[in-house]
């Protein structure tokens, strides 16, 4: 099963105090950012700081991602600096086609690391969304494709709203492309970090759409995102009941099971198995099936 990526928080790559808070925030992943949060004249400094931080700090279970600059800017220099430190994943901004992903893949392979480094293309333009499936399939190292709502909105000439109607189609396309390619779909940030209700509703909506997680721009957002993406006790109980009913049906040579008056078929069983896998990953209690 792929890593759990309910939340990933952006941390400016040139700010030591914020970087070293990373392991303590409880997010599933930190994104040490070399791109938008670093001014052009500080790119070299951030590169050294992030490289040393990855080598020296103990991030524990937290996945360490690095967002490099676009390959058309100094992305390759970023890769050359940070890859030897062994990050867990590289976030590739402004991804628009398979070639960009493959350049990053080549750099990872050539760095000869003993660990796997995942590629997470960040899709944030109209062209990128239209090529989302191609991007998701570009390398076996792609484990998720991620959506950048702010840049996308600007690219299509729309205005960003709380409701997010302007990004609905882009989000849908990204989820469908990700799932067709067998990778995770990860959503954009919710920019207003004072609006907890807005974040919760938006996150419930994207979970419903099929997203596996979303980005955070403020530590206070992590708990809300986790709350939405963590299975509830009732969901886990139902999943256990579904799997048990399916086992019983299989034992009887039947392909059809029923739980609480509803027919259980393959997609429902698969969804239940996914919930149990997430619950196990999070060490949540798994109850006995109900009679």
């Amino acid at each position: 099963m792929a890593r759990l990526r309910r939340s990933r928080i952006y941390l400016p790559g040139n700010r030591p105090r914020m970087i070293q808070k990373g392991p303590l925030l409880g997010a599933d992943a930190v994104i040490l950012d070399l791109e938008d949060s670093v001014s052009p004249e500080e790119k070299d400094a951030a590169r050294f700081l992030v490289t040393h931080a990855i080598k020296a700090l103990n991030f524990g279970e937290t996945e360490v991602m690095v967002r490099i600059n676009p390959l058309s800017a100094c992305g390759l220099e970023d890769l050359a600096a940070v890859l030897p430190a062994g990050p867990d994943a590289i976030v590739v901004p402004k991804s628009e086609n398979r070639q960009g992903v493959q350049i990053v893949e080549k750099a990872i392979i050539q760095s000869n690391l003993s660990k796997r480094v995942a590629i997470l293309p960040l899709i944030e333009s109209a062209k990128g969304i239209l090529n989302a499936y191609e991007i998701a399939c570009a390398s076996p190292l792609v484990e998720a494709i991620t959506f950048g709502g702010e840049d996308f909105t600007q690219d299509i000439g729309a205005t960003r709203t709380r409701e997010g109607r302007e990004i609905f189609w882009g989000r849908s396309m990204l989820v469908i492309a990700a799932k067709a390619a067998g990778v995770q779909a990860l959503d954009t940030v919710f920019s207003d970090f004072n609006d907890e209700e807005g974040l919760r509703n938006d996150t419930l909506a994207i979970k419903q759409m099929g997203f596996d997680g979303r980005a955070a721009i403020h530590p206070s957002q992590i708990a809300i995102i986790h709350e939405v993406f963590t299975p509830t006790e009732a969901e886990i109980q139902h999943a256990v009941n579904v799997i048990r009913a399916a086992e019983i049906a299989r034992g009887k040579g039947s392909g059809v099971a029923v739980v609480k008056g509803k027919m259980i078929d393959k997609p429902i069983i698969q969804r239940a198995e996914k919930i149990i896998r997430i619950a196990e990953r999070l060490d949540l209690p798994i109850p006995e099936p109900e009679a």
Partner: peptide, 8 residues
């Protein structure tokens, strides 16, 4: 921290 001193 030490890593930041070395990086700077």
């Amino acid at each position: 921290l030490d890593y930041a001193i070395r990086a700077r």
